[in-house]
Structures are given as C-alpha cells and as structure tokens.
Write a protein that binds this DNA or RNA. Structure first.
Lengths: 228, 228
DNA sequence: TTTAAAACATGATAATTGTCAGCTTTTCTG
DNA sequence: CAGAAAAGCTGACAATTATCATGTTTTAAA
C-alpha cells in the first residue's frame, strides 16, 4: 500500500492541508484500485461514502437530463478529488463518473474525511475556497451555455481542453474523448459537433487524426469563442 | 441600529450558527441601508469587502456574457446572504447585483466574517454545506441550459419562481420581473420569451396581467419542463 | 482474421430560435 | 398633465440546430 504522506498527488488538492499524522492515518484506511476505460466509478443516486483521489487517468462526470441525454459537467484528472460534495451534504451523488481511459484512484472512507473536516480548519477552509472557485466556474459555464452558440461553445471547449490537459508527443491533446463526448460537453447533437469539428479543420483552426485533436490556431478559436 | 442577535432573518442563513457574542460583535460593526429598485448593490469586478444579509426585497444577480448579453444567474431574496464567495476566495466579484424592487439590506465587513470563519467551525461547516448545495443546483442549471429547449426552460423557470416566491393577495407571483429579465434568466431573446409567454397563456397554463404572472396549471408546466 | 458493433461522417429536411422592423401600451419625468 | 422613454407585442424572415437517413471507417470480440 502506497503511503499518502509520500504521495505527491495530494499537493494538487485540498489534501495538502492535512498534517503528517492525519495522512498516516489515512494511509491506513484508504484503498487503491485501477478503473478500466469505460467503467463506472459511481452512478447517479449512489451513495459514494468517501472521496476519490485521482492518481492517474481521466474520467467524465455527467448528469442525465430530463430529455434523456447525458450532459458532461466535469472532466476530472490526475490530482483532482471527486465526491467531496456528496460527502459534505450527506446525500446520494447527483452525478455519474465514467473512466475515459484507464485510471488509478485512491478511495478514502467518509468518516476519515469528516474527522479531518471537523478537526483541521485549514482543510475545511481550503475546501471552502475550492468550492467558492468551483461556483465561480459554474457561473461561467451557465452563462456560456445560455448565451453562446454551439459553434462558440465548441471553440470554448477546445480551448478548455487545450489548457487543462497535457499534450501527446505529437502535440495532440492528451484526452481520449469520442465525438459523442465532445457533443455532450457542449450540449449539442453528435452530428452537429462532428460537422463543426470538420468546419474548424477546414478553416485550419484545428487538425483531426482519428480521435486526436490538434489545436492549430488558438487566437482564431479565442475570437470565435468570444463572439468576434 | 437593529440588533443581529434579535433579528429573525439570520435563522434563514448560515449566520444562524454564530454565537450570541459573535452576533453582538457584528451588530456593532454592520451597517444597514435601503436600496431602491434598479440600484446596483455591486458590479462585476468590484471588491465587495463584506457580505450582504438581505432583510427585505429581491435582487437579480447576473453576469455579462462575451456576446454582450446579461445572464441572470440568481434571484436573491429575504433571508439570503450575498457576497460570501468573493469574500472566501478573496477576489473581485464576478457578478453584478441589481435590486428588482426596494430592498433593505445589512452589510457586514469582510474582516468580521473571516474572523468567525476561522474561529467558529459550525459557521464554516454550514457555509461549506450551503456551497455544496449551491454547486448541486448549478449542475442542474447547466444541464437545463445545455439540453432543454427555450420552451422547456421557460416552463422550468416559471415553476422555480412559483416555488421560490410568495404570492400576492390575488395569487400572482410576488416578484417584479420584466419580460427582459425573464428572457435573461432562461437565456433567450426578449421577443422569444414574450412569444412563449403568450403561448402559455393561450394554452391556459398561466395568466398574465401586466407584469403579474399567475400559474394556472402546474402539472402541464412540469410535463413540458420535463420534455413530455 | 473475420464479423459485428460502434463510432464517424455527410446530406436533406424540419424545427427552433434570433433578428429586425414597426407598432402599441405603460411608465417615468418635468 | 404632456411628452418622452421604456417596455411590451407581433410579423416576417434568416440563421442556427436537431433529426433522420444512409454510408463509411474504426474498433472490439469471437
């Protein structure tokens, strides 16, 4: 069992505020596992009973709309934690998480996190800050969804992917999304997403090789995203 | 100066977790003011330097999109607090707040709130819960904006207004929104909102008398909102 | 390797939504 | 109260986007 107090991943999330003793305690109760591409980490309505700390890989976090279509709300990757909200308000998850590629995750049981929340003000304040920040980002997403065209949202999303994920050796964005996934991020029909991707490619803003996406012209995408 | 420790409004928000001593301290440093309909409580980019506790009235909280249109993200009313997020992440506000009708608000300076956040774990945990809850609601809004048609979003919004606000004596919803405001909540053109409101009225789902809105058929609106 | 399934792609068409223009009604201000 | 400004309303039309149909390519499984 790898040791939390030696794990560099925690530096990227709120667990960095935990003391050495707290981390040692968590090492003793956490579990590690691998999640294969396509597997479900948790589903809507499920009680998660803890938080996931993502050591490697990417997962998509989505919610089913009344119309029966999945909307991807977050992409979670190495260094992120997952499930803290359901833990805090003590409810079943309102979201579903599916691995986009093979993942390595640690799972920390609920009670341990609650204990730290109550005893370590640095931890709860850091979480509070993270949440305030998430809310701010959610505001931006709401405004984009409500006001931007599908084309603008695709440009916005491509820039987001470019900024959030590493590059492969050939320069493509290191995240393995299907066309349907992309459509479910921007909230449109798969066909529309495909058409617009082709259009962007034709206009030399991006290049496509199978699932690989190369961002060629950040400025053009940015202008488009902002409505020019 | 009214006394916080005797003010019933705080029972509706996180300030209820403060101790009597903390409330007395806040009474001594808070300011009260009235805000006239149409006045700006704070604007995007402004440092708020405290939180507002709403004693009476309603305000709309919005964000300007890249396309130059305002998107209303929250309606805040009696009992709500406002500005806590910018305070927590110590940033300028990303939102603008404008009074929809005459308001009475109290303003508590930043330092006092921070002091309580650091010293009263009940307060920070309650805020944490409130934020986790807000994030959940934001998820729902994102999914609705991304996946529902304008018609569905109008139905959703009317039901939301019905549930959130009191009724006037004649049964209309007690909130004074213009057609443009409604359009800016659902994220559509004012003309589209007007057209759909007329349609809903023709179909006896609602009634309209000037700015007053009467909900006549909750079930029909619910079905519509959920895509049936 | 073969075969089936899934993902990708494109055209045609319909439905939704936005924009512009012009008009009426309501609200505000001096 | 008069006049101006804002808000509300409606029609015509254009642009965007969804849907359906169909064919191709890629991926996964036997």
């Amino acid at each position: 069992m790898s040791k939390c107090e030696q794990c560099i991943i925690r530096e990227f999330n709120s667990l960095k505020t935990l003391t050495k003793d707290e981390l040692i305690r968590i090492t003793g109760c956490k579990t590690s596992k691998t999640v294969k591409k396509g597997e479900v980490l948790f589903d809507e309505g499920e009680y998660i009973n803890g938080v996931f700390c993502i050591k490697d890989g990417v997962c998509k976090v989505s919610k089913m709309s009344d119309n029966g279509r999945d909307q991807i709300i977050h992409l979670i990757q190495k260094g992120d934690i997952l499930g803290e909200r359901s833990l805090i308000n003590n409810e079943a998850s309102n979201l579903k998480a599916i691995a986009v590629n093979d993942m390595e995750v640690c799972f920390i049981p609920k009670d341990e996190i609650i204990r730290d929340l109550e005893n370590n003000p640095n931890f709860s304040l850091d979480l509070l800050r993270k949440m305030a920040n998430s809310l701010k980002k959610a505001d931006d997403v709401i405004v984009d969804m409500a006001q931007k065209t599908v084309k603008q949202r695709l440009a916005t999303t491509l820039l987001f992917l470019e900024a959030k994920f590493e590059k492969n050796d050939n320069g493509s964005i290191k995240v393995n999304l299907s066309r349907e996934d992309i459509a479910n991020i921007i909230g449109t029909a798969t066909e529309s997403a495909i058409r617009l991707l082709s259009e962007f490619k034709k206009k030399k803003m991006i290049d496509l090789k199978g699932k690989e996406v190369f961002i060629l012209d950040v400025k053009a995408l940015k202008d488009l995203s902002e409505g020019f």
